[in-house]
């Protein structure tokens, strides 16, 4: 690897943002998990007591959503659907089976990542809207009980779906070796880019000019 030329994939600000979201999001998810599964209330113990978990969850949640929103805005231009995406999507089974000769090239992000991006946009909006509606004792009393109840259901459903999305995110990040160092230190090797995001190199060629 040492001889390989390295290229920047994630800027410092985005990396700091990403790992802050990981920490804040971990607290948000563990406390939220404790409300959805009463038997796992001890997971909310990450912030002390169940009562503290209830008080702090919305604040951590807001922080998570705002930072995630910021990161989504910064990565928006990488996530537009383009000409590479359909052919890659059709070959997604080969991607999972690691039959690289059958995988068409993709750009900075592949369609799977772009779908994750879109899902996160929906989740951030849903969490903020439903979260405010169900926020006791500040905002919930302003709404009809049935509105709050539906908000609770949507909030929980989005949380479960997002958790599944995060499991996939974690799975892919740990599988495609080099991704995590890329997100930690910002750089990936050119060989890595060629293997996983070949069209990303075109962007660099243009930038170099």
């Amino acid at each position: 690897m040492s001889k390989q030329e390295m290229i920047v994939r994630h800027k410092l600000f985005d990396r700091l943002c990403h790992w802050t979201i990981v920490v804040v999001g971990l607290v948000t998810f563990l406390t939220g998990f404790s409300f959805f599964y009463p038997s796992f209330q001890w997971l909310g113990g990450i912030v002390g007591t169940p009562q503290l978990a209830k008080v702090l969850h919305p604040f951590f949640g807001i922080a998570m959503c705002l930072l995630l929103g910021l990161l989504l805005i910064r990565y928006y231009h990488h996530n537009k659907w383009d000409k590479y995406d359909w052919p890659w999507m059709k070959a997604v089974v080969w991607v999972l089976l690691q039959k690289e000769e059958n995988i068409p090239p993709v750009g900075h992000y592949n369609p799977g990542q772009k779908m994750l991006f879109r899902a996160f946009v929906i989740f951030v909006i849903a969490f903020i809207v439903t979260g405010v509606i169900m926020w006791q004792p500040y905002f919930a009393p302003m709404f009809e009980a049935s509105t709050v109840n539906w908000a609770t259901l949507i909030h929980a459903a989005c949380a479960i779906l997002m958790l599944i999305a995060i499991v996939v995110h974690f799975w892919m990040a740990t599988w495609i070796e080099g991704s995590i160092t890329g997100m930690l230190y910002g750089k990936v090797s050119k060989a890595w880019a060629r293997k996983h995001h070949p069209a990303m190199l075109d962007d660099f060629k243009e930038e170099e000019k």
Partner: peptide, 9 residues
């Protein structure tokens, strides 16, 4: 813990 789920249900 004051989540309010009872109040909305």
């Amino acid at each position: 813990i004051g989540c309010g789920y009872c109040a909305s249900a």
